[in-house]
Design a protein around this nucleic acid. Structure first.
Length: 591
DNA sequence: GCCGTTTTCGGCCCGACTGTTTTCAGTCG
């Protein structure tokens, strides 16, 4: 049983508990456990096998540890089986619809016998949902719309897509009179690999005018809602945009609040309470003595208290004895402790990169000549670069065999002479063959400066075979960088099935670096695996896998991914000078 | 169900919006 399966089971338990109207804090305990497991890169299975104490993990207590052990050892959870016998499986799915939570799902089941989305569509189109107490015509319509939307599948947008969709909207809003400040918050600002919707914060003289400006944007397909402080629209692309007008004295607090993550905010508020302060999107406030211990006063309204901070993020964090925290690490993954200890990392930045070492040219499937790629790298200020075309196994792109590679080296010699401003390394992206051997003769591998090894075929091997295949390739003395290690394509293709923990251990042992492939379709390795790589001391290379000169500008996506894993320039090999870079990669015995 | 040099019991983040109500529950982020 893998972590991802454990997570699915525990999440389902939480869903079912909600429908059963169990203690909400018990539900939250399951959600918190899921969070911990998601953040844990190595398999809990191994910990269980070793007899380790799972309760050492945050949010895992005795009960949860028992659950996990039961899952690992038997593959089942008796408690879930019991609950699932009582509750129809389709009920959980109802809660995916906007406006339907556990209470409404339960009522639909109790009163109308709804057991699935299909059932719900039927009774809703008959008008029977509107007749239920607590429901109405509007809720019924919303459910029907939600079902249609759900069926046309609303996946999250890749960060790179959003970066293309947003600029016209931002420009439009910035040009609106009265909007004096604008910032995109949310997971977009945290540079998460995918984004669900967009939160735009603005400072505006006239909230109405700002709202009208959004509604009047040419890309808007429909208006979802408009309140006093929030306007929501859906763009024709399907992307939902929420505009929030914020008063200047609350700007920083609102920016923190809407940047999230949710987990970060929760921790922030708890921290405030420890200091007898209250944090909201409006600022940091004192809690008046009389309402201490009575968090919810009459009708839930706590007395106001005095404003302590709110105008800037720095001031809000300072009020809680914290340094300003980069959005990428606002995930409650240790950033508070690091700030307290004065040990916040100096995260790697795009400008730290001194070379790009994964790119293609017309020698294989690139669109630009070798010299054009060299010029493009030099123009970006790189000190060095590696041309890494495909090896011959990728026949469809006419990959390079030994003979073709020698001819490429001749051309590299010529280009080197013409471009002394940049060091051009001889590289190759060598296919890992089905049996784990490399797609190039050893004597040629010996003569390459940079050897990237990648999986491009037999993506469907089972875990045992796939892992063994990769481990064998990593053990090759000339393997230097493991390219796009999991092979995933975001929203399109899942990762190959490998034991990532075993692989990272092998990388550490053999001194092979892992790539952060910066292409926004890949972002591979992902953040949680990079986190593990850092823990294990595996060197990291951030590279673009560019197939044309413009692709070289995608490096920032890889850097942002690295920042989410707390990587500093020390962790990223290609922030070093070329001699250092090569020394680490090649610092291994000859064949 | 988890957690604790303030607590092993009694807490557990905060506010807005919507739709349904006539004082509020449910949902969402």
């Amino acid at each position: 049983m893998e972590n991802i399966e454990i997570v699915r089971v525990l999440n389902e338990v939480a869903d079912l508990l909600e429908i059963q109207q169990a203690n909400p804090f018990r539900v939250r305990a399951y959600r918190n456990a899921v969070r911990t497991i998601n953040a844990h890169a190595s398999p809990l299975r191994k910990l269980v096998e070793q007899g380790a104490d799972l309760t050492a993990l945050p949010s895992i207590g005795k009960g949860m540890a028992d659950n996990i052990r039961e899952l690992v050892e038997s593959g089942r959870l008796a408690m879930l089986d019991e609950m699932a016998a009582e509750i129809p499986p389709g009920l959980v799915e109802l809660m995916r619809l906007p406006g339907v939570g556990p209470k409404k799902a339960r009522k639909l089941w109790d009163e109308l016998g709804v057991e699935s989305i299909d059932d719900l569509e039927e009774v809703a189109s008959e008008g029977r949902v509107a007749e239920l107490p607590g429901f109405g015509v509007k809720t019924q319509d919303r459910i029907l719309r939600g079902i249609r939307n759900y069926r046309t599948s609303t996946t999250r947008f890749r960060l790179g897509e959003v970066d293309k969709l947003l600029p016209p909207l931002i420009e439009h809003l910035r040009a609106t009179p009265g909007i004096t400040r604008l910032e995109v918050a949310g997971s977009y600002r945290r540079r998460k690999e995918t984004v669900g919707d967009i939160d735009v914060l603005v400072l505006a003289d006239d909230a109405r005018a700002a709202s009208d400006a959004l509604v009047g944007f040419s890309g808007v397909e429909s208006v979802i809602g408009a309140g006093g402080t929030k306007t929501s629209v859906r763009l024709r692309s399907g992307l939902q945009v929420d505009l929030r007008v914020v008063p200047p004295e609350s700007w920083g607090a609102a920016l923190i609040y809407f940047t999230g993550s949710k987990e970060h905010n929760i921790r922030l508020r708890r921290r405030a309470l420890e200091r007898k302060l209250r944090v909201s999107e409006y600022g940091v406030f004192t809690i008046p003595e009389e309402s201490l211990g009575d968090a919810l006063g009459e009708r839930g309204i706590a007395s106001e208290g005095e404003v302590v901070a709110g105008a800037t993020e720095e001031e809000v964090y300072r009020a809680l004895d914290l340094s300003w925290l980069p959005p990428e690490i606002r995930r409650d993954r240790g950033e508070f402790a690091a700030s307290d200890a004065g040990e916040l990392p100096r995260l790697v930045e795009t400008s730290d990169l001194r070379g790009d070492v994964h790119m293609h040219s017309t020698w294989s499937d690139g669109r630009a000549s070798l010299e054009e790629m060299v010029r493009a790298c030099a123009a970006r200020g790189y000190e060095y670069m590696a041309i890494t075309d495909h090896s011959k196994a990728l026949a469809m792109v006419e990959g390079l065999d030994a003979a073709k590679l020698r001819r490429q080296w001749d051309e590299i010699e010529e280009v080197r002479a013409a471009h002394p401003e940049i060091r051009i390394l001889r590289g190759l992206e060598v296919d890992i063959l089905r049996d784990g051997s490399l797609d190039l003769e050893d004597e040629m591998l010996e003569r390459l400066d940079v050897v990237i090894i990648s999986v491009h075929s037999f993506l469907g091997l089972d875990r045992a075979r796939q892992t063994a295949r990769v481990l064998k390739a990593l053990a090759h003395p000339r393997s230097m960088i493991f390219g796009h290690p999991t092979g995933r394509l975001i929203n399109r293709r899942g990762p190959i099935d490998v034991d990532i923990d075993d692989i990272l251990h092998a990388c550490a042992e053999f001194g092979v670096a892992v790539e952060v492939n910066s292409h926004p379709h890949r972002l591979d390795l992902k953040d949680s695996h990079l986190w593990r790589a850092r823990e294990l001391g595996v060197p990291v290379v951030v590279a673009t896998d560019a197939h044309r000169p413009d692709d070289l500008d995608l490096a920032h996506y890889g850097i942002e991914q690295a920042r989410r894993a707390w990587l500093t320039p020390e962790h990223v090999l290609n922030t070093r000078g070329v001699d250092d870079f090569l020394a680490v990669l090649q610092g291994k015995p000859a064949i």
